[in-house]
Simulated scan of single mutants.
Amino acid sequence: MKKLLLAAFVLASAAFSAKAQQGSVLVYGSLGLQTQSANYVNLRNVDGESGKGTCFSIAPGVGYQFNKNWTAGLELGFSSNKSGDAKAENLFNVGPFVRYSQPISDIFSIYGQAGVGFESYKQDQSKASGVYVSVVPAISANIKNGFALNFGFGGLSFENTKVKDGDAGSSFGVNFGKSFNIGVSKNFGGKK
Results as ranks from 00 to 15, higher is better:
K2C: 08
K2T: 14
K3C: 08
L4P: 02
L5Y: 09
A8E: 00
F9G: 15
V10G: 04
V10Q: 03
A12S: 15
A12Q: 12
S13Q: 08
S13I: 07
A14M: 10
A14D: 05
F16W: 10
F16Y: 11
A18M: 05
A18G: 15
A20E: 14
Q22W: 05
S24L: 03
S24A: 12
V25D: 04
L26V: 13
L26I: 07
V27Q: 01
V27G: 02
Y28E: 12
L31D: 05
L33T: 09
L33Y: 13
L33G: 12
Q34C: 02
T35D: 04
Q36T: 12
N39G: 11
L43T: 14
R44W: 09
N45V: 10
V46Q: 09
D47H: 08
G48H: 01
G48P: 00
G48E: 01
E49R: 15
S50Y: 08
G53P: 01
G53H: 04
T54V: 15
C55K: 13
P60Q: 02
V62C: 01
Q65I: 03
Q65V: 09
N67V: 03
W70P: 00
W70V: 12
W70N: 02
T71Y: 02
L74M: 11
E75H: 05
L76I: 08
S79K: 09
S80W: 07
K82W: 06
S83H: 13
G84D: 11
G84Y: 09
D85G: 13
A86C: 04
K87E: 14
E89A: 12
E89H: 10
N90Y: 03
N93Q: 14
G95R: 05
G95E: 07
G95K: 07
P96D: 06
P96F: 06
F97R: 00
Y100A: 09
Q102H: 13
P103A: 11
I104C: 07
I104A: 09
I104T: 12
D106R: 14
F108Q: 06
S109Q: 07
S109L: 03
S109D: 10
I110F: 12
Y111W: 10
Y111G: 09
Q113Y: 02
S120C: 05
K122H: 14
Q123A: 11
S126L: 15
S126V: 15
K127T: 15
K127W: 08
A128G: 07
A128M: 07
A128F: 04
V131I: 15
Y132M: 08
V133K: 01
S134E: 13
V135C: 08
V136I: 11
V136R: 04
V136C: 01
V136H: 01
A138H: 06
I139H: 02
S140H: 00
A141F: 10
N142A: 12
I143R: 00
I143H: 00
I143S: 02
G146H: 03
G146Q: 00
F151V: 13
F151P: 05
F153S: 05
G154C: 02
L156A: 06
S157E: 14
S157P: 10
S157A: 15
F158M: 10
F158N: 10
N160Q: 14
K162D: 11
K162M: 11
D167F: 06
A168P: 04
F172Y: 12
V174G: 06
N175P: 05
G177N: 01
G177P: 06
K178N: 14
S179Y: 06
N181Y: 08
I182E: 03
V184L: 15
S185K: 01
K186L: 05
F188V: 06
G189Y: 03
G190H: 00
K192V: 07
